[in-house]
Simulated assay, not measured.
Amino acid sequence: MTAPGLHPAQSNDGSARMLLALKRVSDLVLVALALPIVAPAFLVIALLVRLSGPGPVLLRLSCVGQNGRVFGKYRFRIVYMDAERRLRAAERDPQGDSGRDPRVTPIGAWLARNGLNRLPQLLNVLRGDMSVVGPRPITLACQRDSYPFQEHLLQVRPGIFTPESLVDEQFARSETDRRALDLAYAANPALSTDTRILVTAFARMIGLRSV
């Protein structure tokens, strides 16, 4: 068993190290199965993002991954390139649509709502930057703030799908709540937990919100 307070990667237990190896293998298998299915959708989404306005199709956000390695997390662009100007204009116009973020393109709002803006992160999984399931990636800005317990989160690869998937999406969670879920996952990773997160996240993506 894993020693109390330690991540499995820090334990001398060979079965714990085997678990992490199996997780990497399962990541590669899942991506290999998913890529032929999502490739057509990837191309269609890329075209829609290009048509939504000037700017790159993909954005890279600098994050800190396992063992402190910095990588660029890919995602489809969901905002206008002049997002801040649009936000300031909306703030000056109280009659505008307050229920919609003026920085986000219509296609971007749909992509974010369904989690499809994260599809390019399958490439991060192939590269070994991320896992299919894991804690939320830590941005460089957050690392510079020396967020408490960050060292524990950096023992595992960050994930596309996160432990938040297991919590009712209508429940208002603070940043502290979300990070607590990440820490709990990092302390006790398990393939059974990964399976629950994947099933729940997929159910929500296809509209089965109550699952």
Score class of each variant (00 low, 15 high):
A3N: 14
P4D: 04
D13Y: 14
M18V: 09
M18F: 14
A21R: 03
L22K: 01
L22Q: 11
L22V: 08
K23R: 12
R24L: 14
V25A: 14
S26W: 07
D27A: 10
L28I: 10
V29A: 12
L30Y: 07
L33C: 14
A34M: 08
P36L: 10
V38R: 03
P40F: 05
P40S: 11
P40E: 06
L43Q: 08
I45F: 02
A46M: 05
L48M: 12
R50C: 06
P54G: 01
P54D: 10
G55N: 09
P56Y: 06
V57K: 00
L61C: 07
C63A: 12
C63R: 12
V64M: 10
G65I: 08
Q66M: 12
G68F: 07
R69F: 03
V70E: 14
V70G: 12
F71L: 05
G72N: 02
R75N: 09
R75K: 15
F76T: 01
F76G: 04
R77M: 15
I78L: 03
Y80Q: 04
M81V: 13
E84M: 05
R85L: 01
R85T: 02
L87S: 00
A89K: 00
A89L: 09
A90N: 04
R92I: 00
D93W: 06
G96R: 00
R103C: 04
I107C: 04
A112R: 15
N114Q: 07
N114H: 13
G115L: 03
R118A: 15
P120E: 00
Q121D: 09
Q121M: 13
L122T: 05
L123K: 03
N124S: 13
L126R: 03
G128Y: 04
G128T: 03
D129M: 00
M130D: 11
M130F: 04
S131V: 10
V132L: 11
V133C: 01
R136Q: 12
R136I: 08
P137R: 01
P137D: 11
L140N: 01
A141I: 05
D145S: 12
D145C: 07
S146I: 13
F149T: 05
Q150P: 01
Q150C: 13
Q155M: 12
V156K: 01
P158W: 06
G159E: 03
G159R: 01
G159T: 02
G159I: 01
F161C: 07
T162N: 09
T162K: 06
P163H: 09
D168M: 07
Q170L: 14
F171L: 15
S174C: 11
S174N: 04
D177F: 08
R179I: 11
R179N: 08
A184I: 06
A184Y: 05
A186G: 09
N188M: 02
P189T: 03
A190L: 08
A190R: 11
L191S: 01
T193H: 13
T195L: 15
T195D: 06
I197E: 02
V199C: 08
A201Q: 03
A201D: 06
I206W: 13
G207Y: 06
L208K: 07
R209V: 05
R209A: 11
